[in-house]
Each structure stands twice: as C-alpha cells, then as structure tokens.
Amino acid sequence: MTTDTLGGVARRRPWISPHALRRNLVAWIFMLPAAALLVVFLTYPLGLGVWLGFTDARIGRPGMYVGLENFEMLWDDSVFWLSVFNTVLYTTVASLLKFALGFWLALLLNEHLPFKAFFRAIVLLPWVVPTVLSAIAFWWIYDAQFSIISWVLIKWGWIDAPINFLGDVANARASVIAANVWRGIPFVAITLLAGLQTISPSLYEAAALDGATAMQRLRYVTLPLLTPIIAIVMTFSVLFTFTDFQLIYVLTRGGPVNATHLMATLSFQRGISGGQLGEGAAIAVAMIPFLLAAILFSYFGLQRRRWQQGGTDR
C-alpha cells in the first residue's frame, strides 16, 4: 500500500480528520430525524405520485407501467385542457389581484395609523379562518337564491333577479377568483409589511432631501429593496393558488359544466372519486412543469441583483 510506504505522516492525515469526522457524524445524527421526515412524508409520496402517473393503477388494484398512455389520453381530453386553462387563468388573475391589493394594503398599514396593531390583526383574519369555513361562507354569499349581495342589490332596486353567481361561466370564474383573492390578500399584505419595516427610514429621509416625490420614493427606494421579499411572497402565492382545491370543491365542484374545474380538483375527481388513480396522478404530475416554471422565474428572474436595483440585463 502506498500509504504504508510513505510512512506515518500520511497515515496521520486521512481525508477527514477524526475531529471533523466526529463533528460531522454528530451533525448527521442531528439531521437524520429531519431528513427521515422529509423522505417519508415528502419525497416518497411525491415519488409515488409521479410513478402512479405512469401506471394504470386503479383504486384497489396496483397498476402496471404504461408509459405515457395517461398523458396521451389527457392530451385528447377536452375537460383536462379546460381545467388547464381554468387553472392558469385563476392563478394569473388571482395572483395579480392579490399582489396589487396586498401591496396597497401593506403600504397603508405601514403608515402611522391609530390602532395600528388592531388593524394589522384584523387584516390577518381571512388567512386565519380555515379555508373550508370561509368557502362555506362564500357559498352562501354566492347562493343562486339566497345571496346577500343579490338581496341587497334587489332591495336597492339595482337588479330585478338574483345574480347567477356560480351558474354562469364568466360569473362563476370571477366569483371563485374573488373568494381566493379575499383569502390570499393577508398573506401578501403582512409579509410585504414585514419587508417594508426592514427598510431604513434614513433612506427615505435622504431621498426626501434630494427632493424625491412620494411616487419616486416608492419607485426608487421601496420597490428595489422590497423585490427579494416580493419574489418569495409571489412565488408562494402562485404556488398556493395554482394548487387550490378546497375553495372550488366547496363552491362548485368544478361546475357549471367544468368551467371552474382546476387541475387539482379534476385530479381528485378522477383519481379518488372516479377511482382512476393513475389518471388522477397524471393530472397532478402535469401540474409540476407549471409550478417549476413559477419557481424558476422567481429565482432566476426576480432575485437578480441587477433587476432589484432597477437596472436591466445587458
């Protein structure tokens, strides 16, 4: 052996010193529970889900590998494409609205308001209420016969008949988006508020001394410094919205005529209610590229220093 011929010096210098080894070992042991949790509850189910998408598994019957067959079938399925369209529309519109309204709310809450703590707590409410509960509240608000909105408008004489919130295609889409926005705003607002508070007041003072208007301070001080937070918040917001399930399930079950079916609800309907695990999993797998794209956009786009500092790529 070479080490033997080289003598004791080499032997006393293994690739990791015993001390480091011991320390690493301890580190590994400490990481093990977390890693085990991740593997058991995250990696394995995800891997299994992806695998199921390539099988013809049905409820009560393990599947055989069928390659891309499920995806080929989905390719020809008008309902699937409708759900893709719905999901993209739902995510885009709801995320933009959540950002605009949430940012606005954060700016307001960052001002010196009376009862500031109280208002900040109130804003969190929609986020704190369990989704299913708020969805049921919206279900009543959008009821074809008993909607409070319709009732008020009829009382005022603005309309003659109740609004068909969840029956008409356009109305139904707008209604579920509105409900999602209502629920998602607090997350965006509170997180952006936290970001706003990390911006040093001295920057604003300096800008004010230079004669910057409020709009300019927002554009050249607040936004650039807030971009990293915005990137994270919007990534999460898009992910939550894209994978939304409960709201649709309670409000419409994907109706009317699948106009509000999202990929997540269709996946459940096909996979669990319909018993076609393979196809349901395939729909869920089909969501992954969209989600990855959202994450990549956030990481490689919004987090670029140059962008954050108001510049552009050269």
Binding site: Y142, D143, A144, Q145, F146, A161, P162, N164, F165, L166, G167, A172, T252, R253, G255, P256, V257
Partner: peptide, 21 residues
C-alpha cells in the same frame, strides 16, 4: 326552472324549497 340550477349542489334545492322559493 328557477334560475341558477346549473350551479346547484346537493343542498341547494332543499334550501330554496323550504324557503318557499
């Protein structure tokens, strides 16, 4: 029909019926 039946889930008809609609 009364408007909105295409958005009905299982409970809607009971509710509207009991309300005299």
């Amino acid at each position: 029909f009364i408007p909105g039946t295409e958005s009905w889930l299982d409970v809607n008809n009971n509710r509207a019926f009991l309300a005299g609609e």
